[in-house]
Design a binder for these strands. Sequence first.
DNA 1: CATGTCTGCCCC
DNA 2: ATTCTGC
DNA 3: GCAGAATGGGCAGACATG
Length: 632
Amino acid sequence: MDYSELVKSYKKLESTQSTLEKTEIISKLFINSPKEDLDTLAHLIRGKAFSEWKNLDLGIGKKLIIKAISKATGIKEEKVKKEWKNKGDLGDAVEVIVKNKKQQTLTTKKLTLSLVQENLEKIAGAEGSGSQSKKISLIAELIGSAEPEEAKYIVRTVLENLRIGVGEGLVRDAIVKAFFSELIGLSELDGYEITGQQVGIDKQLLGSISEYRLNKVKEKTELIEIDLSDDGISKLWKKEGADVFITDRKKEIEDRLKGIVQHAYDVSTDFGEVAEVASKKGVQGLREMDIELFRPIRVMLAQKSDSMEDAFEAVGSEEGLAALEYKYDGIRVQIHKEGSDVKIFTRRLEEITDQFPEIVNAIKDSIDEEEVIVEGELVGFDPQKGYLPFQKLSKRIKRKYNIREMIEKIPVTVYLFDLIYCNGNSLIRQNLRIRWSKLNSLINKIDNSVELASHLETSDLDKAQSFYQKALDENQEGIMLKNLSKRYKPGSRVGYMVKLKPVMETLDLAIIGAEWGEGRRRDWLGSYKLACMNKETGELKSIGKMATGFTDEQLEELTNKLEDMIIQEDGRSVKLKPKVIVEVAYEEIQESPKYESGYALRFPRLVAERETLGTGDVDTLDRIRELYGKQS
DNA sequence: CATGTCTGCCCC
DNA sequence: ATTCTGC
DNA sequence: GCAGAATGGGCAGACATG
């Protein structure tokens, strides 16, 4: 497939916000794609170079892209940066630059999907001395062969930030639409006992089915009237002689198909594979895809809750019963074991087995079952000092050297809370009650670094409150609440699993700088540098940046106000007269190697603008120190 | 060889 | 991680 | 309610540079 064809679709996707339209555009691409491009297409459509589980990195960021653009076009880096600031997007910038350049040069070779993919693979494979310049050359080569619009999307793809509003859900729906529009093989779906070959098409889908496909359908189908819904089926197409019926239960069937595709993706984390199986083996093929040991599946995520009452409301079963667990401040891990082989994965499916050899051993000792996948939180825990802050634990995550030394310096414990797979059986469709009790039964409770998460099943709010308090007293983040009758849903933020954390005090801080935004924030200052007051010297000291919590309206207002206070501009960042004071929420104060105050905020976000305050009213460094001291 | 810059579907 | 936005 | 987008601190490692 020519890259230009994909680019046409990118453009359309970027220009509409309608999910139906987007699904339609993507599904057409899938339908028209040659078989050998399906895999590449499935990744590129989301702006990803590779499938997630493969652990391939491009190692390219904005700084190197600027060099590549400069190299490909002969435009100075400074000018590229200027255009970037101008457009609020490096892709938009390169488009303009290439457009101006094109007047002088002839286009070289035509870009195809496979050529783009090939270069991306070469980029990921480059390492060692001189590898950066090699990567830059490979990108420059693509940009050099690209039409302006193609260059735009190549740059965005390399940055893995396509900004066209296509995520996982849309690709899933598009796969359903592309390969199962006709719903041939309806009989394979649970609950529908249908023999023969029929085609069910919803009114909404009619617009998208091509004449060619319709005729194909006619060729191989034989009309049988089936009452799929309580209301019966429409005869519209029968009158015109097509063997197609319109069902009012389209949504149900479609949801079922989406569920099948979703499950296939959840266990494979690879839309390329899902698309290929859907195309070659159909629904049955997808259904046969299942969890495989040592191939991590996507984890289930929790929603936020504001109070214990809300939390119980969200997850409580009929009798108001819920499972409560500590929310440990560590790393979410999924651990696979087969005999004496153990692998540890993070929630982004990165493997961190080598970093935690003591956990590998402890798992072997704690679990006798041959094959399991368990899930838990890996926490820094020192028997002498108690739980360690996340910052300490994080020193171990990406470590390649001195691993042994760190086992003693930063000891860890893993608190298990879920069982996903056991001896050939996936448990994700089982409810939590079953998964938790089975997990309990297979953990040998011996004294090592593997424990079960602190867990309480109750419907009593008072008991829940004291459990929550206990978690906080032990320096954990809060608690999780889970519905015991619900299944494991990979990759989803589900409402029946919520987290509850205390509301932190807020700080009043001065805005002393900012950075111009990108994408939807291209016209606004999108990130704000904050400072507290050193009372002794009367100086404002930086304490971090804040970039979330405001509405679009607030962003616009703030930008307008702050534009008049710019003292100095340097590329994308501006220095500001400290006039605007904001109330900022955060989760924790951390020691910082980066900011003047020596501290930084963990997860800072805007609460409100404090229009009545001036720089004399901002919180002092002394107060920050005091709050920091109170944390542990 | 020491230091600085950049990167990460990084971890949170 | 958090938060807002549009569907 | 969901998915998507835009952004936070800080860590180790990999290269580039001098």
